[in-house]
C-alpha cells in the first residue's frame, strides 16, 4: 500500500512539475525576446540565439531541480499523499517564481546597460565634430 501511494504521488508530481516548467519557460522567453531585442539594439539574430540559450539553461536548471527534489517518504494514506504533494508542488512553484523574478531583474540590468552604452555613444558622436 505504501509503495503504491508513493508511486502514485510520483506520477502526479512529475507531469505537473514538467508542465509548470514548460508553461513558465514558454511565457517568460516569449516576453523576454522584447528585452533581448532592446539589449542587442535590434540585431535580430543574436537576440534570438541568446534568448534560446537562456531558455535551454532555464529548462535544464528547473527540470533538474524538479526531479532532484522528487523523493517522498512515509506516505501512509491519502491525506499524507496530498500534504506531501502540495508541499513539493508549492515549494517548486515558489522556487520557479523566484527564478522568474531573477530573470526579469537580469533583463532590466541588461536593458539599463544597453541604454547607457547607447547614450555614451551618442555623446561621443556629438563631441567629435565640435572638437575638429
Amino acid at each position: 500500500m505504501t509503495t503504491d501511494l508513493t508511486v502514485t504521488a510520483y506520477f502526479i508530481y512529475i507531469p505537473i512539475a514538467l508542465v509548470l516548467t514548460w508553461f513558465v519557460a514558454r511565457n517568460l522567453f516569449k516576453n523576454g525576446l522584447v528585452y533581448m531585442r532592446d539589449i542587442f539594439n535590434g540585431r535580430e539574430e543574436i537576440a534570438v540565439s541568446t534568448n534560446q540559450l537562456f531558455k535551454t539553461g532555464f529548462y535544464l536548471l528547473n527540470v533538474g531541480f524538479a526531479l532532484w527534489i522528487l523523493k517522498m517518504y512515509q506516505l501512509e494514506n491519502t491525506q499524507e499523499m496530498i500534504e506531501a504533494l502540495s508541499q513539493k508542488i508549492g515549494g517548486f512553484s515558489v522556487y520557479l517564481g523566484i527564478v522568474l523574478f531573477l530573470n526579469l531583474f537580469m533583463f532590466f540590468r541588461g536593458k539599463k546597460a544597453a541604454r547607457q552604452n547607447r547614450e555614451a555613444a551618442e555623446r561621443r558622436a556629438r563631441m567629435t565634430p565640435s572638437a575638429e
Binding site: 508541499q87 508542488i89 508549492g90 512553484s93 515558489v94 522556487y95 520557479l96
Partner: peptide, 10 residues
C-alpha cells in the same frame, strides 16, 4: 507562481 505556490506549501 508565488501566491499559488505559497498556498500549496501552507
Amino acid at each position: 507562481l508565488l501566491n499559488l505556490g505559497y498556498v500549496a506549501l501552507n
